[in-house]
Amino acid sequence: MANLHKPTTAGLLLAVLAATAGCATTSDLDALRSEVQKANATAERAAADAASAKQDAAAAKTAAEKAQSEAEETNEKLDRMFKKSMYK
């Protein structure tokens, strides 16, 4: 969220400065607004990527845990079969 705030805050400051200083043209402001929007979009994409990566990591962890659990279960089955084969 911090990344999202930064461009927006900077954009507002520049807009306020431009309005009060009276030295910026409309095209300057439009260009600035465009840059801010691009920055916002980049930040949103990054946040989405991060969320997606987090989901992937969680899914990978779940898969690893499932694989571990299945391996333990298989070992338990092997142990039981081995033990039973040693009965008289």
């Binding site: 081995f82 033990k83 040693m86 008289k88």
Partner: peptide
């Protein structure tokens, strides 16, 4: 005749 069972609870 099942030497691998020694060390387990497998007998009667």
């Amino acid at each position: 005749n099942k030497a691998f069972g020694v060390g387990m609870r497998v007998s009667h």
